[in-house]
């Protein structure tokens, strides 16, 4: 049987940040990491271990010092920045720990913004689609509300809707439940899980919460600051 190529593939990826006096601080060293299509992957590790950097690298927000990153078959590292931005808008949905909704815009407009930047959905369909996604996430009565008028749980659901706006194959979530209470966090995790299963999306989630591990296809543990290692309990080793 033919094996499906991984939707995310990191090869010999290193990331360093420049320090004073010409020295660099290496925060990531990943010989190889493959994430398969439709999988639900949880990234764990102590603070400063490079979890957010890993997501930023996959999203093309940060460029690796060396190595290659492929998403849906496209080598992100070889794309010029404008194309990388466009690619990210269309292929990657990013959910932030602090939601990062844009304050002057309503829930619908926040979702539509993602479509505006990606330019993959016709303009006349954007509002309709934003309303549909928000309604699916139980926010049909909150469409015209601004972030400040929404609860934290609702804000995070708007952020999820925004990440789904362009129907991207890959969803990256950076500690999406860190600012939420346990009950709301459970709702958000279930929503992400459902997306993964029903819409066959690849979800990569950074989470401290053990609840996030439930149903995970693979768990990546970032053990120390310089490299990524898998856990020896039968999940994955990278």
């Amino acid at each position: 049987m033919e094996q499906t190529p991984p939707v995310v593939l990191l090869q010999a990826v290193q990331k360093s940040f420049p320090l004073h006096q010409g020295r660099d601080l290496q925060v990531l060293d990943i010989p190889q990491l493959a994430i398969s299509v439709g999988s639900y992957t949880v990234v764990q590790g102590p603070s400063g271990s490079g979890k957010t950097t890993l997501l930023n690298l996959i999203a093309g927000i940060t460029m690796p010092t060396s190595g290659h990153i492929r998403v849906s078959g496209t080598d992100m590292t070889s794309l010029p920045e404008p194309q990388r931005d466009r690619f990210r808008a269309a292929y990657i949905g990013y959910i932030f720990q602090t939601f990062n909704l844009l304050a002057p815009f309503t829930a619908v407009e926040n979702v539509m913004l993602a479509m505006l930047f990606a330019q993959t959905i016709p303009k006349r369909e954007q509002r309709q689609r934003a309303v549909e996604i928000l309604s699916r996430l139980g926010l049909s009565t909150r469409l015209a509300h601004r972030p400040a008028q929404l609860s934290r749980g609702e804000q995070q659901r708007v952020a999820i809707a925004r990440a789904l706006a362009n129907d991207p194959p890959v969803l990256l979530a950076d500690e999406p439940c860190a600012s939420l209470d346990a009950a709301t966090a459970q709702v958000v995790l279930m929503a992400l899980h459902a997306m993964c299963r029903e819409s066959h999306k690849t979800v990569l989630i950074v989470a401290h919460d053990t609840a996030a591990l439930e149903g995970a296809d693979q768990v990546l543990e970032m053990r120390d600051i310089n490299r990524v290692t898998g856990r020896p309990d039968g999940v994955d080793r990278v």
């Binding site: 920045e81 932030f96 990062n100 304050a103 993602a114």
Partner: peptide, 16 residues
């Protein structure tokens, strides 16, 4: 700055 960074993360180009 944070909102601009968010827009960029959502795919807005620098020129945008």
């Amino acid at each position: 700055r944070r909102e601009i960074a968010t827009m960029r993360a959502l795919g807005a180009r620098r020129l945008t």
